[in-house]
Design a protein around this nucleic acid. Structure first.
Lengths: 150, 150
DNA sequence: CAATATTATTTGCAGTTACAAATAATATTG
DNA sequence: CAATATTATTTGTAACTGCAAATAATATTG
């Protein structure tokens, strides 16, 4: 097996570069990378219970609970307890959360655009499609359970 | 901007799934994900100074120093001080390090193979090529410096 | 060649992360 | 409907991470 063709390696180094390149813009508004993932998810998909948000952001649910603590302290989100089921907590963007998200979004868009400067539209579409397909080919945290359940 | 087509999102969730799916095999031999990245890198590219290893694994160099502490304690690697330049420390796999790597490798290969089960050879080649191209389109940690240097 | 600058790695420290257990609520079942 | 199981989130804790400063060595320069 060659490192340069090993998918986890190729994916990880791209992910780390995205983070590194995004960091200056995030620092400017005092938002860390995890909080940024929560911000876009909420901005685009609307208020979510913690569990759904965990799936959406790929952040471990107990880590996410702490990320939400930080964000709540900064008034970026609020926890709405027991809207339909009192066990779940709906997380909503605040006005400030929306504002901050909209301040960051142009940087994010520019960074993404810059990263695929040399891509044709077809290549870009293919990359997105193949990344989605790859995701579906993986098991996620329920790998063990999935396998046992057959 | 749509979340489902946003590259950092697509890449991050694939990366997290790779980690989640790999974790059981790593736990079995008591190796964490960062150490695993170091193991494959050294196994395939040979002994490296810390800085080069940091680039190769996308692990922050100061974090890497601590990862190497753990690995050294487990006798997976050794630090060879001042081979050519006494400032640098060459990191080498130990026999045990090689052994453990070879115990994990089949799981890693199987996981990768399983993740692309539905891919044609052409799709797989395209994905790898586009991920490499995407990586090159990103700036890495020197983004600021690069930009200033023009 | 002493003083200063540069390069490579480690360490202090203040957070962040994730497992497992605890808490809190709803759902099931005998 | 009380007892038990299940679902959703938080919290205790121990380890991990990354920035910035410290250390340690080589390279440059006046």
């Amino acid at each position: 097996m060659e490192l340069g063709s090993y998918l986890p390696y190729l994916v990880n180094r791209v992910g780390q570069r995205f983070i590194a390149d995004m960091t200056p813009a995030l620092n400017k508004v005092g938002v860390d990378i995890q909080s940024w993932r929560v911000l876009i998810a909420l901005y685009q998909q609307g208020g979510q219970p913690v569990g759904a948000l965990s799936d959406l952001t790929s952040i471990n649910f107990s880590t996410l609970s702490r990320v939400l603590d930080r964000m709540e302290k900064k008034l970026l989100v609020e926890r709405l307890r027991g809207i339909d089921d009192a066990r779940s907590v709906k997380i909503e963007l605040t006005g400030k959360g929306r504002e901050v998200t909209e301040k960051i979004l142009p940087h994010a868009a520019a960074l993404e655009a810059g990263s695929v400067d040399d891509f044709s539209e077809a290549e870009l579409a293919t990359l997105r499609q193949l990344l989605a397909k790859l995701y579906n080919g993986l098991n996620g945290e329920n790998a063990e359970a999935d396998r046992l359940a057959g």
